[in-house]
Nucleic acid binder design. Structure first.
Lengths: 148, 148
DNA sequence: ACAAATATTTGTATTTTGCAAATAAAATAA
DNA sequence: TTATTTTATTTGCAAAATACAAATATTTGT
């Protein structure tokens, strides 16, 4: 059996690189961290700051400042929550949504190209494998706070 | 078919977290970037600075300074190459090797624990899937300089 | 021998990071 | 209900990471 960590290392490095390279949309450049933030805000419905910071395992103070930047850039909207006045609710502006969508399209395009080199069966197998992996990782208790 | 990017995002985030959490060995704390550097130096035979910086897609000036730190910490040895006097050759000190090995053991331990939740057949399938994925990503030309 | 290319370092300025502390609101306890 | 504790977020601050431009040294190509 080959070195499993090495396989993961290569795979995640490549995917990380892909994410990074998809951070330039037209005249706008965002950082990898910002791209992840947009992605998660887009995915959730009116999440709070703490919620997204937790998901990204990001220090809340760093996150707070990144959100300030994204608001200044006009990509994120931050509104006080009506229910709990400690909480701020996040959402994407039209511009932010556009960026997030464009990045998403590019990444999925690349992935589609990669999968086009496989047979349909292989593709199904690989996808099922990643799902299984994610499920097993989620169950594991050995490591990796913050868990989510 | 579900969202493929999301599957990757979750998987790589988890693995990234694992890597990060395995950066503390006893009294020594290294950064994630430094952990990756140690890993790659360990993997190659007397690599040059440029070589490792390329593999990690790291700016060479940032890399140079990180190596300076690792040398100061006593984890990396940097020697002028006999063949080409522009080049410096990198290797791990005993201490550095120890750190790298310990990190490697911890990560593989976690992965083993994750795989222990699968049948032998599933495990084989997942590993073969990741390998296939890596091969197909390597072939792809659409995206992702720096390629390696 | 000379120009161009390669490997590495330093100057410098910007950005990111994260701990400690502050603020404000909500939840819980007395 | 008032006091205390907890939770969400921001700011101060100092250290670390980042990257572009320029410098240095060496090698390669002509």
């Amino acid at each position: 059996m080959e070195n499993i960590r090495e396989l993961f290392q290569v795979m995640t490095r490549r995917f990380g690189l892909l994410n990074k390279n998809c951070c330039s949309i037209d005249p706008i450049d965002i950082s990898l961290a910002q791209s992840h933030i947009l992605y998660e805000i887009d995915k959730h419905h009116s999440p709070s700051m703490q919620q997204i910071a937790d998901i990204l395992a990001m220090d809340i103070t760093t996150f707070s400042r990144q959100i300030q930047n994204l608001v200044k850039m006009g990509l994120v909207k931050k509104e006080p929550s009506p229910e709990d006045r400690r909480v701020y609710t996040l959402s994407l502006t039209t511009q932010g949504k556009f960026i997030a969508t464009t990045i998403d399209r590019e990444i999925n395009q690349y992935l589609a190209e990669v999968f086009s080199r496989m047979t349909e069966f292989e593709k199904e197998t690989v996808i099922r494998s990643i799902k299984l992996l994610n499920e097993c990782m989620a169950k594991s208790s050995v490591c990796c706070k913050p868990l989510f």
